[in-house]
Amino acid sequence: MPKVALIRVEDHSYEAVYQIFKKWLSQIIDPAIFQQSKIIIKPNLCAPLLSETGATTDVRIVEALIAYINEINPSATIFVVESDVNSGVIYSPDMLFLETGYNQLEKRYSNVKLVDLSRSSQTTINNEGLKHFKESGLSLANVLTDGVFVSVAKLKTSVHERYTGILKNQFGCLSTSRKDQYHPYLSKVLTDLNFVLEPKLCIIDGLIGMEGLGPTAGKPKKMNLLIIGNNPVATDAVGATVMGINPKRVTHLKAAAKRELGEIDVEAIEVLGERIQNVKEKFKFINEISYQLLRLSFAVVRWPLPKGVKFFIAKHLHNLARALY
Rank of each mutant, 00 (worst) to 15 (best):
Phe312Asn: 13
Arg275Lys: 15
Ile245Gly: 06
Leu190Gly: 06
Asn142Tyr: 00
Ala299Cys: 09
Gly209Leu: 03
Leu261Gln: 14
Phe97Asp: 01
Asn142Glu: 15
Val242His: 00
Asn86Leu: 09
Glu52Val: 15
Phe34Asn: 01
Glu270Tyr: 08
Gly172Leu: 07
His318Asp: 12
Tyr182Gln: 05
Tyr68Met: 05
Leu272Ala: 11
Ser75Val: 13
Asn319Cys: 08
Ala240Gln: 00
Lys107Gln: 14
Ala234Met: 10
Ile269Gly: 05
Ile33Gly: 04
Gly262Val: 14
Ile40Arg: 02
Ser87Pro: 00
Glu211Pro: 05
Thr123Lys: 14
Tyr182Ala: 05
Pro232Lys: 07
Lys282Pro: 07
Ile286Glu: 06
Ile28Trp: 04
Val152His: 04
Pro48Cys: 06
Arg249Met: 14
Lys179Met: 10
Ser121His: 13
Thr145Leu: 09
Asn224His: 11
Ser136Cys: 09
Leu193Pro: 07
Asp84Asn: 15
Leu190Pro: 07
Lys307Ala: 14
Ile227Arg: 01
Arg275Ser: 15
Val9Trp: 02
Thr145Ala: 09
Val59Lys: 14
Ser175Val: 04
Ser13Tyr: 01
Val85Met: 09
Ala234Leu: 10
Asp11Pro: 08
Ile276Pro: 08
Phe298Pro: 01
Leu155Gln: 05
Leu324Trp: 01
Pro43Val: 11
Asp84Pro: 04
Ala55Cys: 12
Lys113Trp: 02
Leu305Pro: 11
Ala5Asn: 08
Leu253Met: 13
Ile208Asp: 00
Leu317Ile: 11
